[in-house]
């Protein structure tokens, strides 16, 4: 799976810190990854893992009490070093983000066509007429029937699935090199979600857009992503090609997520959950943050923190346990 493609987004040592009243909380800790052209990287984690905050930071959308350090280089520019004005030149144009709830990013007082044309006029210097044509074409592309008519609608007149399509159309209008999708299908019904995932798959091949798919749903990851990055308590704990992580997970947390997820095509009498609950970011345990919940831990885990190291080409894990977690016969 690892073809030598050029990297569009390189993130190095990203830290995101929130100042709370009593203390500082490190929501993202020393996160580094690269995203290649046209690839879909799934970022998987539970609430509090920092998966959303990391990308809000890259987009310059952190809450007031948050700050980010490190580097996020897109096309030779470090996004984290830019001012808001500088960032606005890239946001929407080179890097776009869509959210779980499309209503939060659509202006309820504007017709769909006005909101979408505006992006083209601003970023790509289209005339209003040309912009409108392009908008209709894009709306059709993302599967909105009767696009010319729907373009005149206001956001609240559309269903949830349609709104999400509009958001995707808006994000793609400027042909961004990177599209960040934060739980894009979580609020949708299963049958609509299936349509949306199909759309995502075709988008990366048609537009060559690299996609960062932030999700908690391993089913979505399996269907869409090329590579995945599992996050726990603010850190990446395992990265690699999707198939490798699903069939041969090397971090016990990745394994735990897999065994916790019920499958529709198997009837299991009991799931194998991860015991305990995610840690408090203000008081992380010493050593490995996952240690207290880990079935594979040994002495060293509570003393040192395992670094995220490459153990096979294209695969990294932050775990001291040396052997595969699934026996060869189970892996098949």
């Amino acid at each position: 799976m690892s073809h030598p493609k050029s990297d569009v987004l390189v993130v190095d040592n990203l830290d995101v810190i929130f100042a709370l009243h009593e203390a500082e909380v490190r929501a993202v800790n020393d996160l580094s990854f690269r995203l290649s052209e046209g690839e879909t990287l799934a970022v998987v984690g539970e609430s509090g893992s920092g998966k959303s905050q990391a990308f809000l930071a890259i987009m310059g959308l952190l809450a007031k009490n948050g700050r980010a350090t490190g580097k996020a280089v897109l096309g030779g520019v470090d996004l984290l070093s830019l001012s808001t004005a500088g960032l606005n030149q890239h946001r929407g144009k080179d890097i776009a983000m869509i959210f779980q709830d499309p209503m939060t990013s659509l202006n309820p007082a504007l017709r769909i066509r006005s909101q979408l044309s505006e992006v083209l006029v601003r970023h790509r210097g289209f005339t209003p007429e040309a912009a409108f044509k392009e908008v209709i074409a894009m709306l059709e592309r993302v599967g909105i029937p009767e696009a010319a008519r729907r373009a005149n609608a206001y956001p609240h007149e559309l269903s949830g699935g349609m709104r999400q399509r509009v958001m995707i159309a808006m994000a793609l209008l400027c042909r961004p090199r990177v599209l960040i999708a934060d739980e894009p299908t979580t609020a949708l019904d299963v049958t609509v979600q299936a349509q949306m995932l199909d759309l995502f798959k075709s988008l990366s091949t048609d537009f060559g857009t690299a996609m960062l798919l932030i999700t908690h749903d391993l089913g979505v990851v399996a269907g869409v992503a090329d590579r995945m990055m599992v996050m726990y308590a603010g850190r990446a704990v395992e990265t690699g090609p999707v198939d490798d992580l699903f069939y041969d997970p090397r971090h016990p947390y990745t394994l735990g997520l897999l065994t916790s997820t019920p499958h529709i095509d198997k009837r299991q009498s009991r799931l194998t959950p991860i015991t305990g609950a995610p840690p408090n970011l203000e008081h992380l345990p010493d050593g490995c943050a996952f240690g207290p919940r880990c079935a594979f831990r040994f002495d060293r885990c509570s003393l040192d923190r395992p670094p995220l190291g490459e153990f096979a080409p294209g695969r990294r894990k932050a775990c001291f346990y040396p052997k595969p977690l699934i026996g060869e016969e189970d892996a098949a």
Binding site: G48, S52, Q53, A63, N65, G276, P279, N280, L281
Partner: peptide, 23 residues
């Protein structure tokens, strides 16, 4: 703001089926 309500009141559980909290 961290969108997680856990912050401020969770847990360092031992690997037992019981969830523990240190508040």
């Amino acid at each position: 703001m961290l969108t997680d309500r856990r912050i401020g009141n969770l847990a360092h559980p031992a690997p037992a089926p019981i969830e523990e909290a240190s508040a």
